[in-house]
Amino acid sequence: MSADQHRFVSADRRVREDRRFVAGKGRFVADIDLPDTKQVALLTCPHAAARIISIDKRAALAMPGVHYVLDGSELAAATLPLMTGLDTPNVPRRPLAVDIARYSGEWVAAVVADTRALAEDAVEEIDVRYEPLPFVLDAE
């Protein structure tokens, strides 16, 4: 094969966009500051496995600057499950846990507020009652 025909094959190439990233010229979604943008903070499950008994949003919603508290059931009713790439039809993956949280740190609810700090504070005011479930720690 001739070299000029295959100039990308087996050749060290530089990435076109790297230059701007190493020089501090990157631009990310977090850099975009549109007026009146609302911020989201997420509530995570503290249990390795737990049934979600109830989610009391009232205290969070009563805070000034808090606009919405979204839970898994409401989101699931309005959206399709995420694609998992795995053949596990009985375990639909959802952005926010529905009924059962399956790992510590799984997102359970999302708060929309005027600022990230407000949203984070409001997350702490959501009162979730869990029923911890048995869990496994390894594949065996």
Binding site: R14, V15, D18, R20, F21, V22, F28
Partner: peptide, 18 residues
């Protein structure tokens, strides 16, 4: 250093790079 990061592909999305 900036040049070496480009050369070895020491970045992809660039968020942590600075």
């Amino acid at each position: 250093l900036q040049d070496a990061f480009c050369e070895t592909h020491g970045l992809q999305c660039g968020y942590c790079t600075p």
